[in-house]
Simulated assay, not measured.
Amino acid sequence: MGCVRRRMTVRTNPPGATVSVDNQMIGTSPAASSFVYYGTREFRIEKDGYRTETIRRRFNPPWYQMPGIDFISETLWPGDLRDERIIDVELVPKTLEPTPDILQRADSLRTQSQTGMVTSPR
């Protein structure tokens, strides 16, 4: 009889990023996985040369998954119901700091540590 199919898909631009949901890897983008429970999910998207993105997204249940109605949609509904969630992520390239800036900051920290005066690196 009835059945509710839940699926989340993570798409990235550019594709090919490693996608984890709630600290479990689901694959390389575009990556899809089924889910059972609604609520807040944490997505972690990683790709070489791009900034790692951590996104928290709340999945609210649709009307047919509200208590009481969910019994009908899960067991008595004559067809399949589909709940597809799509998360699109635009990856941002990592910015490399120029070498002279890094060396200058390192010299500054070295001097501060030698004189006993240490401040925040930034």
Results as ranks from 00 to 15, higher is better:
S73I: 04
V89G: 01
P62Y: 10
W77K: 06
D101N: 15
P61S: 12
E74P: 00
I87Y: 04
V89F: 02
R57Y: 15
F71W: 15
L103Q: 05
R57L: 13
E97Y: 05
L103V: 06
P62G: 11
N60Q: 08
D88G: 06
I102D: 05
Q104N: 06
D83V: 07
T75I: 07
L91T: 01
G79S: 13
D88R: 03
P93D: 01
P100D: 12
S73G: 08
D80W: 09
R57C: 05
E97R: 11
G79K: 12
R85Y: 10
L81S: 14
V89A: 01
R58A: 12
D88P: 00
L96A: 15
T75Q: 07
V92F: 00
I55A: 12
G79Y: 09
I87Q: 06
Y64M: 06
K94S: 02
Y64Q: 03
L76K: 15
L76W: 15
M66Y: 06
L91K: 00
P61C: 07
I86K: 01
I55K: 15
P67Q: 10
Q104K: 05
Y64R: 02
R105T: 14
P67F: 12
L91N: 02
L96F: 14
D70A: 10
R58S: 13
G68H: 09
P100Q: 06
Q104P: 00
T75G: 02
I87S: 04
L76F: 15
T95M: 05
D101W: 11
N60I: 01
M66Q: 03
L96V: 15
T75H: 12
D88S: 09
T75M: 07
Q65R: 13
F71S: 12
N60W: 08
R56A: 14
I102E: 12
K94Y: 00
R82N: 10
I69Q: 03
W77P: 02
V89E: 04
M66V: 03
I87G: 02
I86N: 02
E74W: 01
D101I: 11
G79E: 10
D83H: 11
Y64S: 03
E90D: 13
P78I: 10
I55S: 10
T75Y: 14
R56T: 14
P78K: 09
E74Q: 08
Q65W: 14
D80A: 11
L96W: 13
R85E: 08
F59V: 01
G79A: 14
V92C: 00
T99N: 03
P98S: 11
R105A: 15
I87N: 02
G79D: 12
I86G: 01
K94C: 06
G79I: 08
P61I: 06
Y64W: 11
P78V: 10
R85C: 05
E84L: 13
L96H: 15
L91S: 03
R85W: 07
I102P: 02
L103P: 00
N60A: 07
G79R: 14
Y64T: 01
Y64K: 04
T95W: 04
F59G: 03
D83N: 12
Y64F: 13
V92T: 09
